[in-house]
Design a protein around this nucleic acid. Structure first.
Ligand SMILES: NC(=O)c1ccc[n+]([C@@H]2O[C@H](COP(=O)([O-])OP(=O)(O)OC[C@H]3O[C@@H](n4cnc5c(N)ncnc54)[C@H](O)[C@@H]3O)[C@@H](O)[C@H]2O)c1
Ligand SMILES: NC(=O)c1ccc[n+]([C@@H]2O[C@H](COP(=O)([O-])OP(=O)(O)OC[C@H]3O[C@@H](n4cnc5c(N)ncnc54)[C@H](O)[C@@H]3O)[C@@H](O)[C@H]2O)c1
Lengths: 221, 221
DNA sequence: ATTGAAAAGCGAAATATTGCACAATATTGC
DNA sequence: GCAATATTGTGCAATATTTCGCTTTTCAAT
């Protein structure tokens, strides 16, 4: 674990860099400077250089960064060199949208199992992914050695299901419900709260002047 | 604008507080302490007190905060006292999921118009929302005086459409595409990059020890 | 080879955010 | 009315993150 601990803020930007680098590579570009990258990903160029420097000297002064080198490096760092299987619990509105999306193409991530209470869905195959009944959840997760779950169930059910996920040995949860679920300290939760994000945007529009220098957010996060 | 400028990090937490406060009110609870709130929203209690204190002394020492008072106050601050209309461009996978979701109930936000290139969808009504063809976008947005747009189109189309949105006088964009769109400084963009969030979660699991004290994430963003 | 321009890397300052710890003050029960 | 208790509000130190500005290195053109 943790070669040299990287700032959380940096870690959040790595996938962003990686995606743009693969775009550049596909376009046949072989080198890139922090300034060019900066324009594309909307992150200050000094921040990009600092981010990269946590991993050692990846660039060449006076020249820039070699796109292929960076990709090779980040591919490994970001686990893009092996397929990551995740499960999805709650195959409703959002769940279906996520199932339909091809995370594999750009991210080498695959939703390999779904779970739902609804007997009309459980037992079927949706977008090529088998959906199991909730009763089978813990067993299946263990069997398939899945460590990451996307949680898109109604808010009321979120904590109960989470407790089951923890029992199943899950390590990370991407939580789309507005509930801040409780988990033991060894489980990591990534909250994606769409309604909150929308409200935050509205708040910024009402209360902050026309962009006090941050044309984008996130942290946005 | 900006009474006393509130830290961005605080602003992002306000909707979270608000949601839990309305939950408390519905449950008949009349008072709450920063410690109780802290457990529910998973934010340090001192941070909560600090956040609230930016708006003045909202609580009573030795007692806590009056739930109703806080709600009244934040309702106004967060524009929850009036309906906010937003538009959605790109009625595909994600777009449909968002259309189906009732943002009005908890957030007093309504998607009042949709736009899509696909002639099978344009001209229809989806989940009670009229979907217009792209040719009508600028005109409709102006006519309906919509200032906020949710962008769920294919990545290729994102920048072109954004340019149209800017022409239509849009002030804020919630961008679900992985492209960091370019906008003039008076337009605010909130990026929601689901694939990146998932990758970040994977990165944390691989490279950070079992939770170095942040059982949850975000910011955020 | 020499030189000029480009751009990384990085110390250090600036900025932002969090969390401790405690004095101030309200509430409650007696 | 008084003591005991609870809990806010905040100075301040700690931590995290960004950004400046400069030095060093490399490249490419002469
Ligand atoms: N759809 C959106 O745009 C949106 C926006 C913001 C937040 N959210 C949040 O995301 C979550 C999911 O939203 P959605 O719109 O997809 O909801 P949904 O109702 O469409 O889907 C929920 C799914 O979970 C299943 N389910 C219900 N109870 C279950 C249980 N106990 N165990 C397992 N599965 C169960 C249902 O059968 C359904 O398929 C909710 O918490 C919602 O608040 C959604
Ligand atoms: N679905 C997901 O789970 C998911 C996950 C991560 C990122 N995303 C991103 O969100 C965006 C939308 O994803 P999706 O899965 O909903 O895609 P989608 O293809 O299902 O939907 C896109 C919609 O936009 C419409 N469209 C296409 N070109 C258009 C144009 N020029 N103008 C207007 N409308 C146009 C299409 O008709 C379609 O209805 C994409 O950028 C995708 O990368 C989606």
């Amino acid at each position: 674990m943790a070669e040299t601990i990287i700032p959380k803020a940096t870690a959040k930007r790595l996938p962003l860099y990686y995606r743009y680098l693969t775009f550049l590579a596909n376009a046949g570009t072989t080198k890139v400077s922090s300034t060019e990258l900066s324009e594309a990903v909307k992150v200050d160029s000094a921040t990009i250089r600092r981010d990269f420097s946590y991993f050692g000297a990846l660039g060449k002064r006076g020249y820039g960064y070699d796109v292929k080198d960076l990709i090779t490096f980040f591919k490994k760092i970001l686990n893009q060199d092996r397929l990551t299987n995740v499960a999805l619990v709650g195959v409703g509105n959002l769940g279906h949208a996520l199932l339909n999306y091809n995370f594999r193409q750009a991210n080498n991530i695959r939703i390999s199992a779904g779970f739902d209470l609804n007997p009309d869905i459980a037992g079927t195959i949706q977008s090529g992914v088998p959906i199991y009944p909730m009763a089978d959840m813990v067993e299946q997760l263990k069997e398939q050695q899945i460590e990451i779950v996307i949680l898109t169930v109604p808010t009321d059910a979120a904590q109960d299901i989470t407790d089951g996920l923890v029992k199943a040995g899950i390590k990370g949860i991407m939580n789309f419900t507005p509930l801040r679920i409780s988990v033991p300290s060894y489980v990591r939760v990534q909250n994606v709260d769409l309604a909150t994000e929308l409200q935050t945007l509205i708040y910024f529009l009402e209360h902050y002047g026309p962009t006090l220098k941050d044309a984008e957010a996130d942290k946005a996060q």
